[in-house]
Nucleic acid binder design. Structure first.
Lengths: 214, 214
DNA sequence: TTATTGCATTTTGTATACAAAATGCAAAAT
DNA sequence: ATTTTGCATTTTGTATACAAAATGCAATAA
């Protein structure tokens, strides 16, 4: 059992969980006293946790009015994809330049279970995908990059809405990316990651267009 | 005069100022009670401000031990330049694709005062430079990008150490970037911004090598 | 001398108290 | 019927109180 010396940390985690699984709904007002009582803590450590979420852009605070769960609209999702393209693309470049064999190994491990599988479990694959993209950032060893990526909650925001493309579509792309990193081909690694993310983005844009015209 | 409904906001600004101008030194422990008294507020709103700074990676909190001003070492500066390359490069691409004339105008305005000047004031130019790079991000209209850039304090960290390269070196590069954006040449705009930042980064790397070998 | 222990002081983390602002709603006015 | 006003209730922002942990330092032991 992990012992905490700072209550706000488990509260922070619990709140994120509540956001992810829908216990807290988008746009909902967060009444501090109410949540505090629900979690059995006072407003002080809750406030700390909420502050962290505000800085992560998950919660919006209007002074004297309250804290609200931010709503993720279409434009913002697309904008986040643009950020992902920039950051993950650069991460792939850095990794390719590093020529770190153990890093490559870790990336390969993500998708190893799906190599010779005819039927791929979507949920399992989605987790592997999330893990892969996080690893891409982490393995660079660039702390500010990792922080930017983590604190902007790029994944919590984008994933959770389920896979955008099918495993059949993306598995090969993932391996090609890993290959380029392994070969030390920085330009190619960056380009592949960019187009990998861009394809999902374009698909979302098209889906949105169809929805609107219906 | 601006009236605040939330004390932590002016405290936050004041703390940032104190970090920037060296009133608070790198690595220094921040004793809450002491600073709170200095600023004439209680620990509660101060804590809020410190939390924001922690999330911005300017302050490091060790539970039960205290908050410390983070030290920016050489590796981190370089890593931040890598992030800048990714984010500002992407911003230039987005701007070029937008073909927004008023945006181009605003970018031009930054460096207009230096156009026909023989002697350029370094301090004035440094401000223009900072402004230009912030605008590049802001003008995209990509809120997550802006947030990422702002909250990672990319500028506060990098600037303040003074200009890396001389105005003679960079003025033309700035105009070339603006030109590429104006022409709607996204690839070129991104490439130019990247190399612009990369040159400063490489210079820092070389300076560091020389320092070490001395 | 150098380490170790014990204790007073400082500092943090959390809860709580309280004032000021926001909210909701019923009664009055239009 | 709709709008406005006044007031009780709720909620936020800040200060403060208090316990638990960390720190510093002198006295003791090695």
């Amino acid at each position: 059992m992990i012992e905490y010396t700072d209550l706000s940390q488990p509260i922070y985690k619990r709140l994120k969980e509540m956001i992810r699984n829908g216990e807290l709904k988008q746009g909902e007002k967060i009444v501090q006293e109410k949540i505090a009582e629900e979690l059995g803590v006072s407003r002080t450590p809750l406030m700390k946790a909420l502050l962290a979420l505000e800085n992560e852009y998950l919660v919006e605070s209007i002074p004297r009015r309250g804290m609200y769960l931010r709503v993720l609209d279409y434009k913002e999702i697309i904008d986040i994809y643009v950020c992902r393209e920039a950051l993950e693309g650069m991460a792939a470049r850095v990794l390719a330049e590093k020529k770190d064999k153990s890093a490559v190994q870790k990336l390969k491990t993500c998708f190893a279970p799906f190599l010779n599988q005819s039927e791929i479990d979507e949920k399992e694959y989605a987790e592997a995908d999330e893990n892969f993209h996080s690893l891409l950032i982490k393995l660079t060893g660039n702390a500010p990059l990792d922080n930017i990526y983590f604190f902007s909650n790029i994944h919590d925001k984008v994933v959770g809405h389920g896979l955008v493309r099918t495993p059949q579509d993306t598995l090969e792309e993932h391996f090609n990316i890993i290959k380029a990193i392994e070969d030390g081909d920085a330009d190619k690694a960056e380009t592949l990651v960019r187009s990998h993310i861009n394809k999902s983005k374009e698909l979302l844009i098209n889906q949105h267009k169809i929805q609107k015209s219906e």
